[in-house]
Simulated assay, not measured.
Amino acid sequence: MTQRQPRLEIEYCTQCRWLLRAGWTAQELLTTFVTELGEVALIPGVGGVFDVRLDGELLWSRKDQGGFPELAALKQLVRDRIAPDRSLGHSDKKD
């Protein structure tokens, strides 16, 4: 089976029991980017990891950014890379 592009990965800490958070984040992104995302993968990790990558590019790291992403901000990061002309409605930046 070939990988579909773009591929979004959410690596989450199993020790911290963050599967539900990762699953919810994946669901929200798949609901928003119905036709733009090729696939979303949930990747079990350890050590407090909660990283979001798009085609290998790190978009969010809980350790680097000091917490979990706000969903609106994460949607903007994804949108800016895969559908830059698309409006996110109420989740969009206020300029």
Rank of each mutant, 00 (worst) to 15 (best):
Q15D: 07
Q15H: 09
Q15Y: 07
C16W: 07
C16G: 05
C16K: 10
C16F: 09
R17I: 03
R17F: 06
W18G: 00
W18R: 00
W18V: 06
L19R: 15
L19F: 09
L19G: 06
L20A: 12
L20Q: 14
L20K: 12
L20H: 07
R21I: 13
R21Y: 13
A22M: 08
A22D: 07
A22L: 04
G23V: 10
G23N: 12
W24C: 12
T25C: 12
T25R: 01
T25Q: 08
A26T: 00
A26V: 00
A26E: 10
Q27Y: 02
Q27A: 10
Q27D: 10
Q27E: 10
E28S: 04
E28D: 03
E28R: 13
E28W: 03
L29Q: 02
L29A: 04
L30C: 12
L30P: 00
L30F: 02
L30W: 00
T31A: 15
T32Q: 13
T32N: 00
V34L: 08
V34E: 07
T35D: 15
E36K: 06
E36M: 11
E36N: 06
L37T: 02
L37Q: 06
E39C: 10
E39V: 05
V40F: 06
V40C: 06
V40A: 11
A41R: 10
L42M: 09
L42G: 05
I43T: 15
I43L: 14
I43W: 01
I43D: 02
P44Q: 11
P44I: 09
P44G: 14
P44E: 08
G45M: 15
V46D: 15
V46S: 15
G47P: 12
G47Q: 11
G47H: 08
G48T: 02
G48D: 05
V49G: 01
V49R: 14
D51G: 01
D51E: 11
D51Y: 04
D51P: 00
